[in-house]
């Protein structure tokens, strides 16, 4: 463990509120880039933006899955300390996942997808991407999108479009995705439909 643990929010109440509004706005307007205030210096490879989302939404009631790049780091300790979140090793137990290597992320159905009666009992996946300006060009429609909207993101798994299409086909079950860079977030909730022709 590092000698000095990087601090959490300096104003937990108002910081969490402003981060939450960004995330809420992102989910309400899928595939739109929303700014996340940069206020944290978490241990890498956790990015300031996903750290802010984590401290806003995680607590003892939300088991969190971290992918392999986090294993040798202080991130699990940092999340347990600041959010009290239990860290789980099985994706199936997770309410949230932070994925530092989204290109090699586990399949969506490794995570809870909810049940037909309780589709909300499903995971939210936080993908730490390098860019939301370059890479894959994907077009979306659906709730929260007037007409259609284009999103770029990289890196992502090669079969990302197929995964999204399959996730949408499961609706109302499915996972919800938050794609975060250092300072921004874009959401792809399960309700969003991928448009084939781009």
């Amino acid at each position: 463990m590092t000698a000095a643990l990087a601090p959490g929010f300096c104003d937990p109440v108002l910081s969490a509120q402003s981060v939450f509004r960004s995330v809420m706005d992102a989910l309400a307007r899928p595939a739109t880039l929303c700014d996340l205030p940069q206020m944290l210096s978490p241990p890498p490879p956790l990015t300031p933006a996903s750290a802010a989302v984590a401290l806003t939404l995680f607590d003892q009631d939300t088991p969190v899955f971290l992918d392999d790049p986090f294993a040798p780091t202080d991130v699990a300790y940092w999340l347990r300390f600041h959010a009290g979140a239990p860290i789980v090793t099985e994706p199936q137990q997770a309410a949230f996942a932070i994925l530092a290597d989204p290109a090699n992320m586990p399949p969506f159905d490794a995570f809870p997808l909810g049940t037909p009666e309780y589709p909300d009992r499903s995971a939210t996946l936080i993908l730490q991407v390098a860019s939301l300006e370059h890479g894959y060009e994907l077009a979306f429609c659906g709730p929260g999108i007037e007409d259609r909207r284009i999103l770029h993101a990289t890196p992502l798994p090669a079969d990302f479009p197929q995964r999204l299409a399959h996730n949408r086909a499961l609706f109302p079950r499915g996972v919800d995705l938050l794609l975060v860079t250092d300072a921004r977030v874009a959401a792809l909730p399960r309700s969003t439909k991928l448009i084939d022709e781009v």
């Binding site: 969490a16 607590d59 939210t124 399960r190």
Partner: peptide, 25 residues
């Protein structure tokens, strides 16, 4: 701030995000 404790707000916020992701549920 806004009466509710932070733990309660987090729980409600998570519910709001799921509600937005599953419109009408």
């Amino acid at each position: 701030f806004a009466y509710l404790d932070e733990q309660t707000k987090r729980m409600i916020r998570r519910a709001i995000l799921k509600a937005i992701a599953i419109p009408g549920y």
